[in-house]
């Protein structure tokens, strides 16, 4: 078995709240410097920077799974992560079809730009990416799994846009591959406060919006090699694969 360091929740400059320095080139070089082996690219409701980052990251030996931080109808943020390009394309079509048609006002929410490897702006996304899709938590989960992706509700402890803030509880029949907790809380605290989480795997990610935040919280995957199916096994604790969180500040 091998150990891999993963940060599965990173925003780019495409997210309105993402720093302008979060260009694909910068993200990949910082991730490489910080020893990230597996990188999840998750802009709000858009996959449009995933392909370029994947290409750039390959040269650095970083495995990228991309998708989005999708907003459900209940305004719950969930990570949707895919390995193959076909699923990614289908998921982007899903977002295009179901994200609310509200225009971004950059002076209020920030710019939403797609750039190339030279940091030249290729496209300014007009739809406000932090609005919600019209699909429910269950519908999003089902679609992500249909596309063979990972479905991971994000920062479940946070006071807004989280499963706890929006629903008040974790649905007992929730079919999630894992749950992400934010940097504000340790796994130990979360588990002692919420014993109902015992059936779920918890992971930690940086939720980086600024360069210095990349890799500020990571999870370690112990598995055979880097692929989505191995990651899924590790999250489920199958066949000797496992995952654990690196606590903030720990080496």
């Amino acid at each position: 078995m091998n150990r891999y360091r993963a940060d599965l929740h990173v925003h780019t400059v495409l997210s309105p709240c993402g720093d302008l320095e979060m260009s694909p080139v910068n993200i990949v070089s910082i991730a490489a410097r910080k020893g990230i082996d597996i990188l999840g690219i998750t802009d709000h409701n858009s996959t449009k920077h995933v392909a370029l980052i994947k290409k750039l990251a390959e040269k650095e030996g970083i495995f990228v799974i991309g998708g989005a931080e999708v907003t459900t109808r209940e305004e719950i943020h969930c990570l949707a992560l895919f390995e193959n390009n076909d699923s990614l394309v289908k998921f982007q079509q899903f977002l295009d079809a179901h994200l609310a048609d509200v225009k971004n006002k950059p002076d209020i929410f920030g710019h939403q730009v797609v750039v190339n490897a030279e940091d030249i702006i290729l496209e300014e996304e007009e739809k406000l990416l932090i609005s919600a899709t019209s699909k429910s938590l269950d519908e999003v989960q089902q679609f992500v799994h249909q596309l063979d992706g990972l479905f991971i509700p994000a920062h479940i402890d946070r006071p807004s846009y989280s499963m706890f803030s929006q629903l008040g509880f974790i649905p007992p029949d929730l079919k999630a591959d894992a749950l992400e907790i934010s940097k504000q809380v340790s796994e130990e605290e979360m588990r002692s406060k919420h014993p109902e989480l015992h059936d779920f795997t918890l992971i930690g990610c940086s939720d980086a919006h600024y360069p210095e935040q990349i890799g500020s919280r990571t999870s370690i995957f112990e598995m055979q090699h880097r692929s989505l199916s191995e990651i899924r096994k590790a999250l489920a604790g199958e066949e000797g694969r496992k995952v654990w969180m690196k606590e903030v500040g720990s080496k």
């Binding site: 907003t71 305004e75 609310a100 509200v102 406000l128 609005s131 919600a132």
Partner: peptide, 8 residues
């Protein structure tokens, strides 16, 4: 109480 609803 849903921000996206108000937006829309």
């Amino acid at each position: 109480d849903l921000l996206s609803d108000v937006m829309g």
